[in-house]
Amino acid sequence: MRYLLVVFTAALLGILSPLSHAQHSPGQFARLVVLKPKPGLSSEFTAGYQRHLIWHKNNKDPWIWRGWTFVLGERVGQFMDGTFGHAIADFDQAVDPAADSADNNLNVTPYADFVSHGIYERLETASTGALLPDASPFMALNTYTVIPGQESSFESAITNLARLPKNQHLSWYKLRIGGQLSQYVLMRPVQTFSGGGTLSEIELPVGLVQHAQSELLRYQPTLSYEP
């Protein structure tokens, strides 16, 4: 799932105006991929994905890739991986995309289907604490589809939320390419399975959100890679 789609970067650079691009500091972008193991092939997917991570290790990939499984929510049983903290130009520098794709086709795609693949930008003014996600045992993931035309109001609202003392560690991301452009995700670290139920509720003004969902993901150290 790590093959590089160069068109993603080219299209993204076209979306961002020169002014907005000048305001981006390095390290704000992420790639997220969601896969759904094929029925009855979860074990084969896990083994194949681990073989694919060995390819990244053997090819000295400098990027960190983290992996999670969905344990609560609409996508329970699916898998998400991602690489974070990049400048947008980094996505033109992936390790041997053709060979990566070939290994992926050998070890991963026979056992899972792609659900989504997108590039996201971390909204620094709305985020607090260190870059998320991290290697916490669990991650709370809230996904918001904002009513078209209300994106600026939504971003102002979540920026105001970040100033509240109770919101000490969270990362907001905005989808830049790979799906509905009015989509935002909120990531928060959780230490226990039940801990997600004690997180502070995100209170947003009415009339901004078209759809919202909350999910809990379990971090998978054996399905993650750090150089």
Results as ranks from 00 to 15, higher is better:
V209A: 07
S224V: 04
Y3F: 15
D96G: 10
T128C: 11
V33G: 06
D81E: 14
G48A: 11
L186R: 09
D61F: 08
K36G: 11
V108S: 10
T9R: 12
R176V: 13
Y184T: 06
K174A: 07
G14H: 03
P110G: 15
D61M: 05
H56D: 00
S101G: 14
V209K: 10
S42L: 08
Q93K: 11
F84E: 04
N59S: 05
R66S: 03
G178D: 13
Q50W: 04
P165N: 07
D113P: 12
P137W: 01
R51T: 08
P221A: 13
Y49D: 06
Y144P: 09
L35A: 08
F193W: 11
V108E: 13
W55Y: 15
R2L: 14
S194W: 01
Y225D: 07
L186F: 00
A11P: 02
S156I: 05
L13P: 03
N104Q: 08
T125F: 09
L16G: 08
G118I: 00
V34G: 04
G207L: 13
R176K: 10
T9G: 14
G73C: 05
T145S: 12
L204Q: 06
L141E: 00
K166F: 12
V206M: 10
L131Y: 05
H52K: 03
G48C: 02
G48L: 01
A30M: 15
Y219H: 10
I15F: 14
W55H: 12
V190N: 05
L175A: 05
A162N: 02
T125W: 01
G67M: 09
I202C: 05
T143M: 10
P18N: 13
A87P: 04
G196N: 07
N107G: 05
E121T: 05
M187P: 01
D92W: 13
A10I: 09
F138P: 00
F79L: 08
L181M: 13
L12T: 11
D81A: 10
S20H: 07
A112W: 09
L72H: 12
E215W: 01
I64H: 02
H211W: 08
I119Q: 04
Y225R: 04
F193D: 02
G67S: 00
V115Q: 14
L204H: 01
T125N: 05
T69E: 13
H211S: 13
I158E: 02
W65P: 07
N160Q: 14
I64E: 15
